[in-house]
């Protein structure tokens, strides 16, 4: 697997930062509150590291929005919220008076949309930099134990970019973990495209 140089990693972090900034603008309008952003952290994980990473908390309940992309490079783009962050977001978006029975429907709808906003902004920002056209599926929402949700996904992938982005709304901290998982060979293509884009 190709390793990313510090320069490439920094460029990637900035491009993702721009995407997250744009998403924050959209979320700001939906929430009606200012969103305090933090600098996102970006880490490259090889297949072994991914598995090791998962083993730390396989039973944790998470909400996962998944977007598949294909083209010059292919893979999955996922956004994960812990159940704590997920319920804070739903509270902020639809109000706390929501009846518990309706919560599941509402949660699925609103979190899919929040995931859609963040994933689109980040993928759009990367796509702009690389000038590559990708095809996307419609995003899907899943909820359950982290290990069960991610295990079948990561087994087929070669490498991942893990981005942790934290933001605070109305003094409530929300953490989203963004995983960009590449199919075999796609990661190398991605890195090559990144290098070309930065030289241009």
């Amino acid at each position: 697997m190709v390793r990313l140089s510090d320069d490439l990693l920094d460029a990637l972090r900035e491009v993702i930062n721009i995407g997250v900034g744009k998403a924050a603008g959209t979320l700001n309008e939906l929430l009606g509150h200012h969103i305090l952003l933090e600098v996102p952290q970006v880490v490259v994980l090889g297949p072994d590291e991914m598995a090791a990473h998962l083993c730390q908390r396989p039973d944790e309940t998470v909400s996962l929005v998944v977007l598949q992309f294909s083209g010059q490079f292919s893979g999955l783009s996922t956004l994960m919220f812990t159940s704590d962050s997920a319920s804070k977001l739903v509270d902020l978006l639809v109000g706390e008076e929501t009846p518990v029975d309706e919560l599941d429907v509402i949660k699925t709808g609103t979190l899919t949309e929040v995931g859609n906003i963040l994933l689109n902004a980040v993928m759009g920002s990367i796509g702009n930099l690389l000038g590559s056209r990708l095809s996307y599926t419609i995003p899907t929402y899943q909820e359950g134990a982290l290990g069960q949700l991610l295990q079948p996904i990561i087994r087929q992938e070669s490498a991942a970019l893990e981005v942790t982005t934290r933001f605070t709304v109305q003094s409530r901290q929300i953490t989203g973990e963004f995983l960009l998982l590449f199919e075999v060979l796609s990661f190398d293509t991605f890195v090559a495209a990144l290098e070309t884009a930065l030289q241009g």
Partner: peptide
Amino acid sequence: VTADVQHDTRSACLSLGAVALLNKP
């Protein structure tokens, strides 16, 4: 020059004396 496109960020910068604000990139 920032990635944060929120209006409050813009107003905060301008009220702190920045002459203009551009969004990244």
